[in-house]
Design a protein around this nucleic acid. Sequence first.
DNA 1: CGAAGCCTTGATGCGCCTCAACGTACGTGG
DNA 2: CCACGTACGTTGAGGCGCATCAAGGCTTCG
Lengths: 236, 236
Amino acid sequence: MTPRLEIALVRDLPPFSGIDEKSLRDILDMARASRVKVGERVFEQDGEAREFFLLLDGNIRVVKLTPDGEQVVPRYISAGELFGIARALNMETYPASAVAASDCVVLSWPTAVWDGLVAKHPTFATNTYRTVGKRLAETQQQVVELATARVEQRVANAILKLANQTGRRTPEGILIDFPVTRQDISEMTGTTLHTVSRLMSSWEDLGWVKSGLKMITLVEGHKLVLVANGVKPDKR
Amino acid sequence: MTPRLEIALVRDLPPFSGIDEKSLRDILDMARASRVKVGERVFEQDGEAREFFLLLDGNIRVVKLTPDGEQVVPRYISAGELFGIARALNMETYPASAVAASDCVVLSWPTAVWDGLVAKHPTFATNTYRTVGKRLAETQQQVVELATARVEQRVANAILKLANQTGRRTPEGILIDFPVTRQDISEMTGTTLHTVSRLMSSWEDLGWVKSGLKMITLVEGHKLVLVANGVKPDKR
DNA sequence: CGAAGCCTTGATGCGCCTCAACGTACGTGG
DNA sequence: CCACGTACGTTGAGGCGCATCAAGGCTTCG
């Protein structure tokens, strides 16, 4: 038999804030831990939502496929976040696919336990709905951005978001701590890998970022913030 | 004292489906009805979320303002829908403004009653979260569209959505039943009123729509569906 | 060591924004 | 009821931002 999951793993994560240890034990005992290797999928768009998940370690890329085969990446999930919670919103299928952007450790619960879980642990329900609210707000913010900002601004913003979410301090600057390709960025921002490449090259020339293969380091974040806000570089 | 609100007003609306009449009475007794004239605002972006609302009649335009003063319209609310339900997601302020697109009748509840209400009437909570789920899915769909579809497709789609939501059959075709300007459409699709005007003129020449001042009638919906799906008009 | 995946950089063109000007319906007050 | 002002709509000309097409270099891994 598998060992019990450690409460310490999740106790301090936002989804479980304010929940006492006994309840936590109860919740954890319904979960199953598993590993997902980079590139593997946790679940598939339009697939039946049989489980919901908590990301313990790693990074998940959420991917939507359009009818004509293009990909859009509406968000990245990082450690400590719930995902695949279609069931919380009474949906029967996942609205997008979830791909491991790096090696991951996830907890999963059968969807069937959801109703009992929120009934028994209202704090957990509250926390979850707060998360949903944040995601809805973020998504609407994306709509606004796509509708009004130029590519340059959107790409700068995407890099800043990634750096904030999963950045690690290094001597060089803030390193985005999992493999990200130019194509990934383009799918987050509704542009092409070519345009992203050109932009990043120009920023690298200016010394604002450092980038290599699947690797981005933010050197002068504040400069990118200006770009993201549509400030034109010094028009003399 | 004001008369009690009629249960018949809301009994058959989706947010109240599956709720017995006694509970309905209870819920309704906490509500207040009011009228909002076209152009007036029900609530303001970033304002404190003191109430949540149900639209009984009319149409509400949801508007987001960008830092640099541009407007984006992420959705329209039509009769029978809840709106301003920030509180359901533990948010303290409204993420957008709500403007009456036509004369409206709305019910409103003080935010303070929310928690008691969902506790006492779980069916209502479930219905609400289903709505939230649908909106999140729609919003993500918008992101995909803005990221991948050309203006032409997006505008066609916006008109189709409006026609589906609030269209009224007339001898000419399906009439969008409240005033919509070219600018409104452009703010829904992230383009300019000029481009919308040009597109609609060309569709009018083809006989696919009829349009006048603040008025749009869909004559050949299936043609617009093709445009929305990116089918190029007959390339021989 | 070769192949596949990732990145870069140029050339070209077009979709759509921007700027500009004018036409048209509405409603408001004299 | 007509005259005017205002808001809405149309249409043209011009140009820029970014996609598209094309070619080649670099890294990683089997």
